[in-house]
Amino acid sequence: MGFKLLSKLLVYLTASIMAIASPLAFSVDSSGEYPTVSEIPVGEVRLYQIADGVWSHIATQSFDGAVYPSNGLIVRDGDELLLIDTAWGAKNTAALLAEIEKQIGLPVTRAVSTHFHDDRVGGVDVLRAAGVATYASPSTRRLAEVEGNEIPTHSLEGLSSSGDAVRFGPVELFYPGAAHSTDNLIVYVPSASVLYGGCAIYELSRTSAGNVADADLAEWPTSIERIQQHYPEAQFVIPGHGLPGGLDLLKHTTNVVKAHTNRSVVE
């Protein structure tokens, strides 16, 4: 069995187990497998329904001669939608809004960016022009300005110390501490036991640490421990890039980060 097929099978099995364990909360999309990078042309966006009122959005972007996937989250909030992270750029984010209108038909009224990198804030200006209120932590807003990236308009308070959590509509926002970046936030959907790890969490097929220019490698494993301790009931975990899975993604990420750190020390 090929690795790609095995990865998709694991996603399907995880979703099936969740649907059985929580039949009222989960209505997993039966329309197909989780979209992969090879299936999404740059400039297009796919939506994948995880649970009743919960979707991931998947886009792709060219970077350094390669094409990478990027995940975000959409959560229903009454007759409105909360968006977590842009679709990595203005063109993708405009396509995301169009796809949401086509498939869901509810307005996106608020959006949260989970850290300051372009795959999370690139497209904020498109959201703002569409009347979406954009939010991020003060740290993310400051770092985005320093980096020359787009800056969300509103500040999220109460997320300055490791372990801080605040309720934001249908989700809980959690600051686990520094990891992929010093400002990275985690998003949890309690009604569906869905954990969105953003770039602080890796997919299972990833074996290298990737972009760690703004990471705190020493603190990252401790931050992941905080996530595990705060959300032990999480059933569906979405990484910032690639295929979702279960809580095993947290341990896998820790292993990859520690291996990278150990290699760096040896070198």
Rank of each mutant, 00 (worst) to 15 (best):
G2W: 08
F3H: 12
K4L: 04
L5P: 12
L6M: 08
L6S: 12
L6E: 06
K8G: 11
L9N: 05
L10N: 04
V11S: 07
Y12S: 10
L13C: 10
L13A: 12
S16P: 05
S16D: 06
A19S: 07
I20N: 11
I20A: 07
A21H: 04
S22T: 10
S22E: 05
P23W: 05
A25W: 07
S27C: 09
V28A: 12
V28F: 14
D29Y: 11
S30R: 09
S30I: 14
E33M: 07
E33F: 13
E33V: 13
Y34M: 11
P35W: 11
S38E: 10
E39P: 05
V42T: 12
G43N: 15
R46K: 05
Y48C: 12
Y48P: 06
Q49R: 09
Q49P: 11
A51R: 05
G53W: 09
S56L: 07
H57R: 02
H57V: 06
H57A: 03
I58Q: 05
I58S: 08
A59L: 09
T60R: 07
T60G: 05
S62Q: 07
F63A: 08
D64P: 11
D64V: 07
Y68F: 05
Y68N: 08
P69L: 06
P69A: 08
S70T: 07
S70W: 00
N71E: 00
G72T: 00
G72N: 01
I74D: 02
I74V: 07
I74N: 01
I74H: 00
R76M: 13
R76T: 12
R76N: 09
E80C: 15
L82V: 14
L83V: 13
L83C: 03
G89A: 04
G89K: 14
G89N: 09
A90L: 10
A90N: 13
K91P: 15
N92H: 05
N92I: 04
A94T: 13
A95M: 15
L96V: 14
A98C: 06
I100G: 01
I100S: 15
K102A: 13
K102Y: 15
Q103P: 03
I104P: 00
G105Y: 15
P107E: 11
R110T: 11
R110L: 14
R110Y: 10
H117Q: 01
D118Y: 15
D119H: 01
D119M: 00
V121K: 00
G123C: 03
V124R: 03
D125K: 09
L127M: 11
L127D: 03
L127Y: 13
L127V: 13
L127H: 02
L127T: 01
A129C: 04
A130M: 05
A130P: 04
G131Y: 12
V132R: 01
A133S: 06
A133C: 12
T134P: 04
T134W: 03
Y135A: 04
A136K: 03
S137M: 10
S137H: 13
S137F: 04
S137P: 05
S139M: 13
R142W: 07
A144Y: 03
V146I: 07
I151D: 04
I151G: 10
P152S: 12
P152H: 05
T153W: 13
H154M: 11
H154I: 09
E157W: 14
E157G: 14
G158I: 15
L159D: 02
S160P: 12
S162M: 14
S162I: 15
G163K: 14
D164V: 13
A165Y: 13
R167I: 11
V171T: 15
E172C: 03
L173P: 03
F174V: 14
F174M: 15
Y175S: 14
P176M: 13
P176Y: 01
G177V: 01
G177L: 01
A178I: 06
H180R: 01
S181R: 01
D183A: 00
D183R: 00
N184C: 00
N184H: 02
L185K: 01
L185V: 11
V187H: 01
V187I: 05
Y188W: 06
V189P: 00
V189Q: 04
P190L: 08
S191L: 13
A192T: 10
L195C: 00
L195H: 02
G197V: 14
G197P: 15
G197R: 01
G197I: 01
C199N: 00
Y202Q: 13
E203L: 01
L204P: 13
R206C: 08
T207G: 11
T207W: 13
A209K: 12
A213T: 11
A215H: 10
A218Y: 09
A218W: 07
P221C: 11
S223K: 03
S223I: 10
S223A: 10
I224C: 03
R226K: 04
R226W: 06
P232W: 11
A234V: 11
F236Q: 07
V237M: 05
V237P: 00
P239W: 01
G240E: 03
G242W: 02
P244I: 14
G245K: 03
G246L: 07
G246T: 07
G246K: 05
D248L: 12
L250R: 00
V257A: 10
H260P: 13
T261G: 12
T261Q: 08
N262D: 09
R263N: 10
S264C: 04
V265W: 11
V266T: 14
